[in-house]
Design a protein around this nucleic acid. Structure first.
Lengths: 221, 221
DNA sequence: GCTTTGTATTTTGTATACAGTCTACCAGTT
DNA sequence: AACTGGTAGACTGTATACAAAATACAAAGC
């Protein structure tokens, strides 16, 4: 284990990111540099730099001379994000499967077991968050496509607050665990096309679920 | 025409971006904050912020305490970038065509005529650069997918220096003009699938060309 | 009363100054 | 000669201070 030196900018970025993703900062809310700086006990410079990073990640909108706001995502934008994920993750899986070894599959299997255990314990938050991402990433580890991978990671992060919200309000996705198992099995058998198709459906099903919820919330206002 | 106030950070970002894209700063070369600040007659703060933006765009690598370098792109990475473009641009076109009106097609036609004229004049640099992007974007104007659009724009920018290099060394892509015409015609006729397929081939053909050149250059060293 | 103009206040943008980290080089040791 | 430890210089990271822009609000004109 290597110790890593983190700059204040990075620490601040993590802090603000978490605030946005867990809903402590609501969408549209302005982010005052001075206030954040004081709260986190740093100067405004690292706060500014962190905000710019978060803008690149899509979590924040930054307008010159007007400041930053937590970016709002509409139901239609969520749809686009998930459709992009479906497209890109299927592409990753397609290129990954031929390069996956037995031990790679074992790793994926481990992640899936952890995920199923968490789900059985009713711990949907963790299961749909980190564990879910880890399982997916394990499947893509053979793709050797760093750019695609990074875009997918960014998309995931971007919509993760909506996924979390969905879990809170609707208890999470019921069918996800079986779908995961199915995708892994197809991948193991080398059925690339079917595995990719199942993955796409898996992601698009989540989209429909979350979009329905968001549309309902928007209508209520 | 509205006058737009640009911050120094934005101006610096544009300046450095151009330096990288036109080859004045070579890949791998370190970008010293103090030197850039002095050259552009600003302090180091806007330089830092510009470099971070460029990192988000993928043009620069930024390592804590070590500084920024113009990012190197290998032949395999160029391949990935173009394949991503093929995938995402086809997706944009697919969603755009049903929404394109007569006047949208007219705009695309205008761009294409300009492009062909520039090409006939032997002005491949402009034709393969801005004009090419404008034509492509016109085709995607009905897609209504801002995120996808932005990713594509970023990918384009990222590899544009290699496209420019290719033009310098090999005179540009010979078949591109006819391919453009063909894509536009298919789109006008509403033949979505065929148009998307042609677009993919168009982009992948450029990939093969540039990749061949890059591999040759890498071998020579 | 409504619009316009001027001013105070808040907030962001940038310069300067200082602190922390990395790198390269050199002396001393084995 | 190879290795360790230490030191100086270069460069980046961050705090502070000041400048510029945006905003809110009050006063003047119609």
């Amino acid at each position: 284990m290597q110790i890593v030196h983190k700059t204040r900018t990075q620490l601040v970025a993590e802090a603000i990111r978490e605030k946005i993703l867990c809903g402590e900062i609501k969408a549209g809310e302005p982010l005052r540099q001075a206030a954040l700086a004081q709260e986190l006990n740093v100067s405004r410079i690292p706060v500014r730099e962190a905000l710019m990073q978060l803008e690149a990640e899509g979590l924040v909108n930054f307008e010159a001379h007007k400041g930053a706001t937590a970016s709002e995502i509409s139901a239609t934008q969520v749809a686009e994000t998930f459709e992009l994920r479906a497209l890109l993750e299927a592409e990753l899986l397609k290129h990954s499967i031929p390069n996956l070894t037995k031990s790679d599959f074992d790793v994926a299997e481990q992640h899936l077991l952890k995920l199923e255990k968490a789900m059985a314990k009713g711990d949907a938050m963790v299961a749909t968050g980190e564990l879910n991402t880890e399982f997916h990433n394990a499947l893509y580890s053979g793709a050797n496509r760093p750019q695609t991978f990074e875009i997918v990671a960014s998309l995931n992060q971007n919509c993760s607050r909506y996924v979390r919200m969905h879990i809170m309000l609707a208890g999470g996705l019921e069918t996800a665990p079986e779908e995961h198992r199915q995708i892994l099995d197809l991948a193991k058998k080398g059925k690339i096309k079917k595995a990719c198709e199942a993955l796409k459906q898996h992601i698009l099903a989540a989209k429909d679920d979350i979009q329905a919820l968001l549309t309902k919330l928007e209508d209520e206002q």
